[in-house]
Write a protein that binds this DNA or RNA. Structure first.
Lengths: 257, 257
DNA sequence: CAAAGTGGTAAAGTTTATTTACCAAGAAAG
DNA sequence: CTTTCTTGGTAAATAAACTTTACCACTTTG
């Protein structure tokens, strides 16, 4: 090896490059999430220990890379990061074909089990506090018979579990899927009531999943996640059968009048 | 987590820090070996793409850390890096006590097998070219009956194999041991001739070891290294026995005159 | 012994980064 | 709806970091 090959030009980053790298790391690792508002330029420059003009250069680069968006007089925000996990065409397909929905459940089943296992292994104290709070919220909402609050806490619990997995890719993809689920893209949550009118089973499943994670039990957490998704699948199959029966009965009623 | 904890002061290295890090990496990885003369300051500054004053600052830091030494009018050299693998007192002990020598062989046996295995897995094309050259040199030296050249190529082959292991710690430690072996610190190489007068077995062992590495055969390389060290051990035991017999015969001759 | 190559030192110039000041847009408060 | 405050946006002056240039002293080579 010639000596020239041993010594390469020094790769000395400019201050701007270093700032960009640091902020990108926060985004890539999922610590800075989409929509998050960054501190003001003056505040952030102070926190980073750099000058405001240089911070602005870095933010400009990040904006050019579609990672942040700045609005005059409002602030700087982390951009919409997750492309939708599925294209609109695929979402429409799901709406048209019930069988596709079960493919989605199969995928989610694997992902949720994976996330539950990782969460049980890796959850931080902050993660656990958040999960414990959400379990309490879910239980209270159930006692209050507040379906809306219960549903929202349900989504938040799953989001908290995925966050606790500490796996950025999983977090990004599942966040997109949860956002779509929240908007009712996949299914009507009322189906859950088909075989669990009181919602007690759903509550127990969430509590078991949460406690398994709080108690660092990966195998138990994985099983709880799988049981939960299997329950959701059974509920939906029953819901779809019930709707078919009701549709047939309605048609018969029309014909007999 | 408070936002202040999310954003930490930017860790922006100075140019000097970056130069120091790059040269330290070369030393730590074994690419720059002790005693190696670096390019002139003017040449190195050009290769690194930095100014000479800044390079000098970096070299001063490296000298403060005892990694390089500069001599006015002569150049800059990588410092003596490996403390001797053994203290002078231990070396003297080896010289006094033959049994300790076999401890050394036992240690070397394990290290050489490890190195041979890694080398068979990791050798670069340059490593292989170097090893192939040395095998040819060893064979030619044997054919020429040139014991001195054969001995030197022997050391170089073992050094090349350890380099090919790409393990910096192994390289550093074994380099120190080979340097001592070269200086006859451990044993008299003539012992090798006790059961291998023509040196043919030694040659075959070196060729087998080298070819195993060139052909990416880790198990074969490891076995060849072990066989080689075992042969060396047998030779030395035989050599010691022969010396004892000759010493006794000499004493008998004196007494019978 | 002289020339060339090396390390050693320092001043002037350039580039990068910081500090300071001010303008404009939008949100919040009254 | 107006005023105030907070934010982003722009720019000039200053300081720090780095480069360029020049020269001195020591060692090696021819």
């Amino acid at each position: 090896m010639s000596e020239h090959a041993i010594f390469e030009p020094v790769d000395h980053d400019s201050l701007v490059d270093t700032i960009v790298a640091q902020i990108e790391d926060l985004i890539a690792s999922g610590i800075l999430k989409q929509g998050h508002k960054l501190p003001s330029e003056r505040g952030l420059a102070e926190k980073l220990g750099v000058s405001r003009p240089k911070l602005r250069e870095a933010l400009q680069m990040l904006e050019d890379r579609d990672l942040v968006v700045t609005r005059h007089g409002e602030g700087t925000f982390v951009s919409q990061l997750t492309g939708n996990a599925m294209t609109p065409a695929l979402v429409a397909l799901y709406a048209r074909h019930g069988a596709a929905f079960f493919d989605y459940l199969e995928y989610r089943r694997a992902q949720e089990a994976f996330a539950a296992r990782l969460a049980a292994e890796r959850a931080t104290k902050a993660d656990k506090a958040r999960i414990a709070d959400l379990l309490a919220t879910i239980e209270q909402a159930w006692k209050n018979g507040d379906g809306s609050a219960s549903r929202e806490a349900d989504f938040q619990l799953h989001a908290a579990i995925v966050d606790a997995s500490q796996n950025a890719t999983l977090i990004h993809i599942m966040t997109s899927i949860y956002d779509m689920a929240r908007q009712g893209v996949f299914y009507n949550r009322d189906y859950l009531m088909t075989i669990d009118g009181s919602g007690r089973q759903l509550l127990d499943q969430h509590l078991e999943l949460g406690h398994a994670i709080l108690e660092n039990a990966p195998d138990r957490a994985e099983k709880a996640a799988l049981d939960h998704i299997d329950f959701v699948e059974r509920s939906f199959r029953a819901g779809i059968e019930q709707e078919k029966r009701e549709a047939m009965a309605q048609k018969r009623k029309i014909l007999s009048q």
